[in-house]
Design a protein around this nucleic acid. Structure first.
Lengths: 339, 339
DNA sequence: TGAGACGTGGGTAACGTTTTCCAAATGTTT
DNA sequence: AAACATTTGGAAAACGTTACCCACGTCTCA
């Protein structure tokens, strides 16, 4: 309950002005090496730590906010690792706001971060309207991760979902499959159709199928375990059974696997299954799911780098970084049983 | 880039004093309903939001910090859900600091949270010294989750790990097992031996075995997948094979399963395996691991409740909440093959 | 009819920084 | 030696709140 050590205490202890201490703290111009030395020592002796609140009132808070839709998604964890690694031991601190599912929760969280005068924001897979995102980005330096499309106000980092979907289709087609079905996340909103990864994956699937001269077969559900289960059930009930299913996400693939097992079919004997995200579940031995790997760490690192750049120079033109995915082939895909 | 709306703007717009607006904001005493109404309207019209930085300089920041050792652990995600649910739509915002593995990272994060004048801290499974934790708790209201032992300075919420271990041992013994081995996290530090959950689980295992008149068999590795793999390998190399293995955590159990499969043994035919945490991996169909369930959500909710109470009254005596775990029996445990 | 209590409302000094000046000292060029 | 840059250090005004006061009416009760 002892009183907090302030910059005034440090100044007094070092026998210099408050201004001088502030300059040393910020590595600002106008402090001689001798003075720096003196002040550093006083800071160390008193165990002084600047108050972020007071700093925020004037300038920076040295805080980066990360908005994430879902803590349990391991891909997002990778992104955060990447951010953290890049921020490293700069003076910035990364803080994550949990539970931002849905537009309303997102709005609340973005406001909260702005209220707290954060220096920069990383928004991971936001669903808010583009208008809202632009507004936010005009208020505070912002990088959006995992959402396609460009903005004049924020930088973005995405994975090439169209290419990723093509990787899967090509892999399956090369194995000899012709009836390759896709389970997509149902989407109607126009902007999201253009910008959300799920829509891009579906588009990539259609393109790749067309290039191969194959008919697309689509079940439109949601990116959840249940969505995968229902989607696969629907596909298995059709007249012509697919010989392979490309699920838009790993959880979806797991749901599909369950439905396939229930139907008494084997994987990959009767039907091949591929997912997307290369999450820990996909890599997990007993599952061993063929999946598309996005380098989450790299995406996070790029996002952090872009953000620091933008904090330094807010008027810089925005850039869009697009990374290339890799296909990780495991044991759920193989050639079709019979032609 | 428009200027921020401040309390002064609101006051001017509502034709009242700044004090009056502040009172309304904080639901403080001394504002008539009429004035409240007027001010609320001005706030709405201007879209005013109070600056957390400025507030922090004077009093509260309405921010709760959560320190978490590892984002990927699903149990922690449950705890955070619980915290978030309890905080609900109070004015508080929950912020998580990622990557706090190790004492040094923890120190940095706790400092960062204090620098940011957070109103309260939830520390999940911290490894820092007790002295440090007490210091922090004396600076800012703090609740520690998942670490046993009591402190005069912070409240704590734990699961009864001794009881949890006993649940497993009793379950296995009731099935007829007599050679029940345990894979523990190696621990030498004295305080941690008393306070960390892993140590409590090992102690609970020993007690329960003794109560049953059984000899404890322990492999001392670490709470990781690899630790489980190596631990099981070691146990399987002994003269007398165990008929059951109680792993101190689900990841450990998964590693053990891998070693067992490699040795050409079947589960639960040749050997039973149980984990701890009832993580999503344990529940996952193909794994279906018997495990001890800690109600993470409940723990988080309790922690948040205690924290809000302590923020309200800092001099309240500290309390320790201890929850009871449940055993979830799945398909990796069964009676031993032969006597 | 006073005296006190109470209900309203506002003035203003903090809070701990940063930042914009400004002054003095020192160095550098003509 | 004069004129001009550059370096070094400090004074003081913000920044947007809160909280402690005080002032003014109106009510209540002896």
């Amino acid at each position: 309950m002892d009183k907090r050590v302030t910059i005034v205490d440090v100044a007094r202890h070092a026998q210099v002005s408050v201004t001088a201490v502030s300059k040393v703290l910020r590595n600002a111009y106008g402090a001689s090496p001798a003075m720096r030395e003196k002040v550093q020592q006083a800071i160390a002796e008193l165990g002084y730590r600047p108050s972020a609140a007071a700093r925020g009132l004037r300038g920076q808070t040295y805080t980066i906010g990360v908005m994430i839709p879902e803590l349990r998604n391991l891909f997002f964890a990778d992104v955060i690792d990447g951010i953290n690694a890049q921020i490293g031991d700069t003076d910035y601190q990364v803080l994550i706001a949990p539970g931002c599912n849905g537009e309303k929760a997102e709005a609340r969280v973005m406001d909260a971060m702005i209220d707290r005068s954060m220096d920069g924001l990383v928004l991971i897979a936001p669903v808010s309207s583009k208008k809202r995102l632009n507004e936010v980005a005009r208020t505070v330096p912002t990088v959006v991760v995992g959402r396609h499309g460009s903005s004049p106000d924020y930088d973005s980092v995405t994975d090439d979902d169209v290419a990723g979907a093509a990787l899967v289709v090509d892999h399956l087609a090369d194995l000899g499959h012709r009836r390759i079905a896709h389970i997509e996340h149902h989407e109607t909103d126009r902007v999201r159709l253009a910008e959300m990864p799920n829509a891009q994956r579906a588009a990539g699937y259609r393109d790749a199928m067309a290039r191969r001269g194959l008919e697309p077969v689509i079940a439109s559900t949601s990116y959840t375990h249940e969505g995968g289960y229902l989607g696969a059930k629907e596909l298995l009930a059709r007249a012509e059974l697919p010989t392979a299913i490309f699920a838009g996400a790993d959880v979806v693939a797991l749901g599909a696997l369950e439905a396939i097992a229930e139907a008494g079919l084997s994987v990959p004997g009767d039907i091949s299954v591929a997912g997307y995200d290369n999450s820990a579940l996909a890599a997990f031995g007993p599952v061993s799911l063929t999946s598309v790997d996005q380098d989450g760490r790299q995406m996070g690192a790029d996002a952090a780098r872009l953000l620091l750049d933008r904090i330094r120079d807010r008027d810089r033109r925005t850039t869009q970084v697009k990374l290339s995915p890799n296909l990780v082939v495991r044991r759920t895909t193989a050639g079709p049983a019979s032609p």
